[in-house]
Design a protein around this nucleic acid. Structure first.
Length: 477
RNA sequence: CGCGGGAUAGAGCAACUGGCAGCUCGCAAGGCUCAUAACCUUGAGGUUCCGGGUUCGAAUCCCGGUCCCGCAACCA
């Protein structure tokens, strides 16, 4: 592989970052770091989606102009990713000029493809919202839940994209694996969705002001989804930029399963229309429940990833999310589980092992070990697991090695050998240092800070007894 | 017959293409003293939701059922 272009979705700024968006972004960051360490030219993108009537309304509710509101929200996302040690190569906002100009070029190309036509959309229009609602939005009486009024049936003029023309092509490319959709259950879901028949989609709105105007019809703005998807190309300076030439197409789009359809159906069809290569792989991960309950604002169980990282540490949050839940499946989040992982895996496991080893070296070798010897254990299989996005298995493998090391220490009793058989003691220590150093390397994409502490702790001239990597929770709470 | 996921030890979960049913926590007994009251060993604990079928062999594949949960595109 000569390059790796990975993206998260751009997050809609009508809500603050939560545990779900953090999960997606951490997973993408782990992969980006993994490939970067492996010497692959890597481009990792995240960002914010800032147009649409919902944003207008959210800004109004906050008593702010959309520009100010979106700027503040984007900063909040960026800051949160920073505290989670997420290091994207770029952060795009759809209100930026570079995005708007790229989208305008894309829309022109789309129009020129002949796949766009004028039509009418009929839907349930709420006067209070000045927007269309879907049946799902309505309350039990069929009224708008916010305004308590019945929506009107209204027709509006839209521009449509002939998505229906791409049914056969989409099906073929997904079936042959030219477009990979993972995990397999999600792929099946998309295929059966396509088999039900695709309707054309509206790509514009006549009544939404906060958006990007259609180049050929300034009375309409581009529908946010259509425009937002294109961020993946606009960030690379589509169509002529150097980055575009180097990194297009995306190697992997990571996202929650809720928005897989947009990425696996509409997005490739749009690209086909303007003759752009398709992304290679699209992965839809699962959802969280919190203590077994669905995440919802009204239940008040929304988890703030920033606060979580503050309290438990960035690496703890990164580790927990990817270790606890098999990537691709739904899972449950709870503080209790996080603390159990912290105590069991991080403090008692990795942290304690590091303490044992550094103390042995400091006490018996005056902290001097010379060159770090190769690991006696092979950890090669872990790379493959990470490439396959099987993060929880990769971490399980690493912890098997930690367990092996603890057992090895107990069986070889180096504290006894240090008194009698110095040569054997050295051998045991060399093995342990070599292994732990390699563990740190495998761990680096997941827990960059911890990995660095271990590596630097072992590669100094004089090793000293380490400070606990993961202090006991009762001491930090 | 809208689509999908789940049901495995007291709890929480794992087991890619069928091959001795595992992990963590908890519980019981023992060991160790290098280590963050950490670590190691052993043990108890299972009808893998139910009923059929395929197979030398099924948690895994097929058929039928029960219960729980999510999603249902112009809602990002």
């Amino acid at each position: 592989m000569d390059k790796f272009y990975i993206t998260t979705p751009i997050y809609y700024v009508n809500a603050e970052p939560h545990i779900g968006t953090a999960y997606t972004t951490i997973a993408a960051d782990v992969l980006a770091r993994f490939y970067r360490f492996g010497g692959v030219q890597t481009f990792f993108l995240t960002g914010t989606d800032e147009h649409g009537s919902k944003i207008e309304r959210a800004a109004m509710a906050a008593g702010k102009e959309p520009e100010e509101f979106t700027r503040e929200m984007a900063a909040k996302f960026s800051f949160t990713w920073d505290t989670l040690a997420i290091a994207p190569d770029d952060f795009i906002r759809t209100t930026e000029e570079r995005h708007k100009t790229a989208v305008a070029k894309f829309l022109k190309a789309l129009k020129a493809s002949g796949k766009v036509y004028e039509g009418e959309y009929e839907g349930l229009y709420c006067v209070g919202h000045e927007a269309f609602l879907t049946e799902k939005d309505l309350d039990e009486q069929g009224n708008c839940p916010d305004h308590k009024t019945a929506p009107e049936k209204l027709k509006e003029k839209n521009w449509f994209f002939k998505l229906s023309d791409y049914e056969a092509l989409l099906k073929e490319k997904i079936e042959t694996g030219e477009l990979l959709i993972a995990p397999a259950s999600r792929r099946n879901e998309i295929l059966s969705f396509i088999n039900q028949g695709l309707d054309d989609v509206a790509i514009s709105r006549p009544n939404v002001k906060w958006g990007i105007k259609l180049p050929w019809d300034e009375s309409q703005t581009a529908y946010v989804w259509i425009e937002a998807l294109f961020n993946y190309a606009s960030v690379l300076d589509y169509p002529d930029g150097e980055k575009f030439k180097q990194f297009w197409p995306p190697d992997l789009h990571v996202m929650g399963k809720d928005i897989l359809r947009f990425h696996a159906v509409i997005w490739p069809a749009l690209l086909e229309a303007v003759k752009m290569p398709w992304p290679k792989k699209i992965f839809g991960h699962g959802f969280f429940t919190i203590d077994g309950q669905k995440i919802s604002k009204s239940l008040g169980n929304v988890i703030d990833p920033f606060a979580l990282a503050q309290k438990y540490g960035t690496d703890t949050v990164r580790y927990f999310l990817l270790r606890e839940i098999p990537f691709g499946q739904d899972g449950d989040f709870s503080i209790k589980k996080l603390e159990a992982r912290y105590d069991g895996d991080l403090a008692n496991g990795l942290g304690n092992l590091f303490s044992r080893l550094t103390t042995l070296v400091a006490q018996n070798l005056n902290g001097e070990i010379g060159e770090i010897k190769p690991s006696p254990r092979s950890l090669e299989d872990i790379d493959k697991l990470v490439q396959d996005l099987r993060f929880h298995e990769a971490l399980t493998r690493i912890w098997e090695e930690i367990a092996w090391a603890n057992k090895y220490i107990d069986e070889t009793k180096p504290w006894e050998k240090a008194k009698t058989e110095m040569k054997l003691f050295r051998e045991v220590i060399d093995n342990l240092v070599g292994l732990l150093y390699e563990i740190a390397q495998k761990l680096a994409p997941f827990m960059p800070d911890t990995a660095e502490k271990i590596r630097s702790g072992l590669s100094t001239e004089k090793i000293v007894k380490a400070e606990p990597l993961f202090p006991r929770l009762e001491k930090i709470t």
